[in-house]
Design a protein around this nucleic acid. Structure first.
Length: 336
DNA sequence: GACGTCACGGTTGAC
DNA sequence: GCGTCAACCGTGACG
């Protein structure tokens, strides 16, 4: 279960260990870099570690994508029903065929490519386990009606992020979303981006941001792990679904939309004062700038820019309070 | 001081 | 339902 609040790094920024930065922040990093702001300044400004800034920019330069990689899961199976079907066919035609020959034919026939070509051992296993009594089965089937159509090709890897609405908890105080909305918010109902309400951010960014960013953002909705292997899609090295389908499940500021493009130049950032009060949601509120913890920022326009646009109402220290968060913040705890 | 790299502890999701 | 595994994450320290 993902914590409702994160930890504070040395720069005063809030992060959730193990989870990627919100896309808005990632986008902001790239934007600032494109504006010629030095990584060290970006790091200070967004209160993200310079290692992270470096990593994100390096990835962007390398792949053109600001997206984090795919977290968790396994590589897609190569022994899809289609592949098994072809293996069966090859075996039927030539019962003495070797596994390595089947492998070559799968490749030659275009059934597989070099990325999803099963290993010889996999083919042998298929022959042993799934096509072991092929001859008997064929005889049996031949005496009957046409065999059932083979299973449909393997469902694309996480092809659909639908999720039973009943399995998506609705935090207390949050309206229950209709089923069709659940498709938008799954899978990571507790992700950082959830808390941040990134969808709104990114949607606004699409309209606000330079074309290069919009293009990248538009890709998000179309990407999932079916893009394995990563090398076949240089633009995106896999993608954490949670970042593709961010949601406004948790906190999205009621007045709405974030102001991602509001940033200040590094010199305007006052010295960091360790926050003494943080909201469980403060680190990932619905504004990019608000993501950053620390003192109030001063916009170039002179208007105060709270580092966390949501009001800080619940006194919480981060790690030290983690053990007690259930008792201290029962609403949050129950929402998790 | 800026920056690239890496170990670390953490999360995630398929199997 | 749970454990394992291998992917990823950002931080923080080091050079």
């Amino acid at each position: 279960m993902e914590p409702a609040f994160g930890e504070v790094n040395q720069l005063g920024g809030v992060f959730v260990n193990g989870r990627p930065l919100p896309n808005a922040i990632r986008l902001r990093i790239v934007e600032l870099a494109q504006l010629g702001i030095r990584p060290c300044d970006i790091s200070r400004q967004l209160r993200v570690s310079h290692g992270c800034v470096s990593k994100i920019l390096a990835r962007y330069n390398e792949t053109g994508s600001i997206l984090p990689g795919a977290i968790g899961g396994s590589k897609p199976r190569v022994t899809t029903p289609t592949v098994v079907k072809h293996i069966r066919t090859y075996k039927q035609r030539d019962p003495g065929i070797f596994a390595w020959e089947i492998r070559d034919r799968l490749l030659a026939d275009g059934v597989c490519d070099k990325f999803n070509l099963p290993s010889v051992s996999s083919i042998s296993r298929i022959l042993r386990n799934k096509i072991g009594n092929l001859s008997q089965q064929s005889q049996y089937e031949s005496g009957k009606q046409a065999p059932h159509p083979p299973p449909q090709p393997t469902i694309p890897y996480n092809h659909l992020y639908s999720y039973p609405a009943s399995k998506v908890p609705t935090p207390p105080g949050m309206p229950t979303l209709p089923g069709h909305m659940m498709h938008r918010i799954w899978p990571s109902s507790h992700s950082v981006t959830d808390i941040l309400g990134i969808r709104s951010i990114t949607e606004q960014q699409i309209s606000d941001s330079p074309p290069f960013c919009s293009a990248k953002l538009e890709e998000w909705s179309a990407i999932n792990r079916s893009n394995f292997p990563a090398s076949s899609s240089p633009l995106v090295n896999g993608t954490d679904k949670a970042h593709l389908e961010p949601e406004a499940k948790y906190t999205q500021m009621p007045n709405g939309l974030p102001t991602v493009n509001s940033y200040v130049t590094a010199p305007s950032i006052p010295p960091y004062h360790h926050p003494t009060q943080v909201s469980p949601y403060m680190g990932y509120s619905a504004t990019t700038s608000a993501y950053v913890t620390g003192p109030t920022w001063q916009l170039a326009s002179g208007s105060a820019l709270s580092p966390h646009s949501c009001d800080i109402t619940t006194p919480l220290a981060f790690k030290s309070m983690a053990a007690n968060r259930d008792s201290i913040h029962p609403v949050t705890a129950s929402a998790l």
